[in-house]
Nucleic acid binder design. Structure first.
Lengths: 234, 234
DNA sequence: TTCTATTGTTTCAATATGAGACAATATTAA
DNA sequence: TTAATATTGTCTCATATTGAAACAATAGAA
């Protein structure tokens, strides 16, 4: 695969995405591991010359997860000069066997527009890109070191997600269509990083009038079966 | 004044700032009017090759207002292809008597990183830039039509300001060091676009333990004199 | 001295939240 | 068949917060 040409993309502009998923009671994000470097990074990419910014992000996420409809939110643009570390991208490209031209555009200073995405963990089919060995889930509190300022980007994403959780009622995007109240509470607890009172949480969620109640879920466990809920589509 | 050269700036990247001020009970923002076009726009600019993004915004605001310390918050980056309207910038530059080179960088597609600023109206000395006839205050609900998507940028700024008002307790940045409770309430009402209950507002503000109470303000009016308050510096 | 307008405080009702009790129930064990 | 267990959904009551209004204080004018 040849090196991307600057004629196709807007120089100096990139996006990075913090893709949140929820599984086994843990909040997780997607990380790429680059060939032969041991380096981890957020899934990101560039914007084509005639492409809307948000379409570029969706395109990139679709290529890596197979998902078409994704809950996406822009949260910050990172533009410090300290991000300019051409030797990092050089090493990544060289580790892929590329010969890098003089003044190659991908080694320039980049501004990164960061988005977070909330997706249903079970619906994802992970596909690495050309530069990466792998793309995989990592627990949010067991992340490896990340290149450049990607660690800071993750922290800012998590902070914004926490602030938006109640205001935008977005927790459900991390669950399948139908879920139990207990599962929803576990999502909230994982995002906020703290336990919530079961009865208060249930009362609050029901009083918001955003949930539909469906049939009971019989798990085979020896106790009362919980109802399944879904978010109202209105 | 010669045309800026691309060697000095990062191409494709601009910032726009929504500068809020408060005067005579009204929330206002700064707008530039370009020479001989009748066009209004937000104060904005470009980022120098070795300059931090936020430093560029502060530099631009300092050049136009004379202020050094400014409460500044990034709120969104606008990157739709519909922003690409080279004829707009062409007309602005030509109205200033410039001869525009082939493929001139300022006519390219730009991503704009938008910030809002909150400043003390009284402390500002307005200075237009080279392309503008004027820079002046406009009431937020009596704005003229703005170029490109600047109207949308203002709306998003206002929305973000409203959401952040209570969470970040930033209203005081629009007032002088010392102010009455009534003035603070007027700021909140102007931002939120709705009346607030005087007694609830006072109780709330005092209970937050963020204000210092100082001497009374004697205005000469025939009624009880209000106290002056200031925000705790902590 | 009285009156007026506005400020700071208090009161009481209405609403929301914290903490826990209680009843219902799906399955297992006796 | 019955009792035990774990978990769910609901209810209760104490506490905190907010809405709405009354009340007291006071700077200047009449």
């Amino acid at each position: 695969m040849p090196l991307p040409e600057v004629s196709q993309f807007i120089p100096h502009i990139a996006y990075d995405s913090v893709v949140f998923g929820f599984s086994k009671g843990k909040l997780k994000i997607l990380l790429m591991e680059y060939h032969d470097t041991g380096w981890f990074a957020l899934p990101g990419g560039f914007v084509e010359r005639s492409e809307n910014l948000e379409d570029a992000v969706k395109r990139g996420l679709n290529e890596r997860t197979g998902l078409k409809e994704i809950y996406l939110e822009q949260f910050h643009t990172f533009g410090d000069t300290s991000r300019y570390r051409p030797e990092v991208m050089r090493r990544i490209l060289e580790a892929n066997g590329h010969l890098i031209p003089e003044n190659y555009w991908m080694l320039d200073r980049f501004f990164s527009i960061a988005y977070y995405a909330l997706i249903d963990y079970e619906k994802v089919t992970l596909m690495p890109d050309a530069l990466s060995d792998s793309i995989a889930w990592y627990e949010i509190d067991k992340l490896p070191d990340l290149i450049l300022d990607h660690g800071k980007i993750v922290q800012k994403a998590l902070q914004t997600l926490r602030e938006n959780l109640d205001r935008k009622l977005i927790g459900g995007n991390l669950l399948p269509e139908r879920f139990t109240m207990n599962e929803l509470q576990a999502v909230y607890e994982a995002i906020l990083g703290q336990k919530l009172r079961r009865t208060s949480f249930q009362r609050k969620m029901l009083s918001l009038d955003i949930l539909d109640r469906h049939e009971k879920l019989f798990t085979g466990k020896s106790h009362k079966a919980p109802y399944l809920y879904s978010f109202k589509t209105h």
